[in-house]
Design a protein around this nucleic acid. Structure first.
Length: 417
DNA sequence: TCTGGGGTCCTAGGACCC
DNA sequence: TCTGGGGTCCTAGGACCC
């Protein structure tokens, strides 16, 4: 049996863990630039505010004090996530960290399963302050559905085991097809056309028909709903590509400012590469204008630069990115977003040396180690390249940011006695 | 005025080869 | 105007996820 633990309203719960005055209130966490709502407390969901709602649409609720919004603080959430996963690692078998707030694990099959998962949920919440839900079923897709029930219905008290065919059928009849893991917007339309409205409707279809109409992905969902596992637990692999991109607080027109942003993104990608002990074989840079501003001329372009030898060197990745940027930059457009993607990522240890490589790699590696050490010990970004600029004109808006309670000494919570 | 960011997997179709 | 049939490899883009 597969278990799925999911943190309830994760970003909001992280904020609440350090600011209990948010408990019981309608709270939302915003995307970068304070653009739209990406996490909601139950109270905010109850007000009918949907995931992804732009902030300006709930401006009046905020002004009236009915809703509290916070800028996203990924440093805090990343650290809280690591705490949750650490507790799980110690108490669950074959853990697969699926996302920042979710993990699958092996529950086994015996009559003590329920007591075990209930205790697990309690342990996680007690040691981290984050409320969680656990769903257990024969496949990961079914465990997701069980988890959904655990969250939605109070009577389950945060844990739902869907271990018998009767319980499964009952649950699938109550599950809209769009709520099933792997069924997205496009498929929903098609399913509706075919008269499929619930997970149960889909499960009842003939396998060959499913394969023909919904391809491999659809067939897998079908198998999983029928209790046949085909998406196995996979230990966390290192990433195949790493992307750093941002929308700008204000639109950018000049190459100079774009260069600062792109070199910062490139530098960030290089750091992420080194943190997971890998190197990239290519880097891609992309720039976009604001697609919502239909009144303005639109432009989007990207360019890939391959490396002769896979690298994680900041200088090399920044240089290649700036070269790519110069190639695609066109003046006369107002740019809203840019990003850097390092691609074809391989493990550091497998990098082949190129006979004709003239660069002194050892020296570059040592320099990077020193920079990482300083940035890790003090504050990320203390040491950076001159080309990244000091003013950072492209910076984001983050007007409602909470302190870094767990990762920055100066912002640690103070207890008054 | 304001509308996120970071990923994975699959497929179709082009290029190329025999 | 006619212009095979298959195979492989690569890439762009779609779909989906949180």
């Amino acid at each position: 049996m597969y278990g799925l633990l999911d943190c309830n309203n994760f970003f909001v719960s992280c904020e609440r863990a350090f600011n209990p005055s948010l408990n019981g209130k309608a709270v939302g966490v915003l995307s970068s630039n304070d653009g739209c709502v990406v996490a909601r407390s139950n109270e905010l969901k109850a007000l009918g505010v949907k995931m992804g709602t732009p902030m300006y649409q709930i401006k009046n609720l905020i002004d009236r004090g009915e809703v509290t919004v916070l800028s996203s603080n990924y440093t805090l959430y990343g650290d809280m996530s690591a705490r949750v996963m650490r507790v799980l690692q110690e108490n669950a078998k074959n853990l697969e960290i699926y996302s920042i707030d979710e993990a699958f694990f092996d529950v086994g099959t015996n009559e003590h399963s329920e007591a075990y998962v209930r205790k697990l949920a309690k342990t996680v919440t007690k040691s981290t302050g984050i409320p969680v839900s656990i769903g257990v079923a024969e496949t990961k897709t079914l465990a997701k559905i069980a988890n959904h029930f655990a969250k939605k219905y109070k009577k389950y008290n945060q844990v739902c085991l869907m271990e018998t065919p009767e319980k499964r059928e009952k649950a699938l009849r109550l599950t809209p097809i769009g709520d099933v893991w792997g069924v997205g917007r496009k498929s929903i339309e098609k399913m509706r056309f075919e008269g499929i409205f619930t997970a149960y409707d889909f499960m009842q279809k003939n396998r060959a028909w499913v394969r023909k109409n919904f391809m491999l992905t659809g067939e897998r969902v079908w198998q999983e709903l029928n209790g046949e596992p085909c998406v196995d637990l996979v230990p966390k692999k290192s990433k195949k590509q790493i992307c750093t991109s941002r929308s700008f607080g204000e639109m950018v027109e000049d190459l100079e400012t774009l260069s600062q942003a792109v070199s910062s993104f490139a530098s960030d990608c290089a750091y992420k590469l080194r943190s997971q002990k890998s190197c990239a074989n290519a880097v891609m840079v992309f720039i976009y204008t604001n697609r919502f501003r239909t009144d303005l001329p639109q432009y989007m372009q990207s360019k890939i630069i391959p490396f002769s030898v896979a690298t994680s060197d900041t200088l090399e990745i920044v240089n290649a990115s700036l070269y790519a940027l110069k190639k695609i930059f066109m003046s006369g457009f107002k740019y809203k977003k840019a990003g850097v993607v390092v691609m074809d990522v391989v493990s550091e240890s497998t990098v082949q040396q190129n006979l004709f490589d003239v660069k002194n790699r050892r020296k570059a590696e040592n320099l990077m180690k020193v920079i990482d050490k300083i940035n890790d010990d003090y504050r990320y970004g203390v040491v950076k390249l001159a080309v990244q600029g000091v003013e950072e004109n492209w910076k984001l808006r983050r007007e409602n940011l909470s302190p870094n309670y767990t990762t920055k000494l100066s912002e640690i919570i103070k207890v008054k006695i």
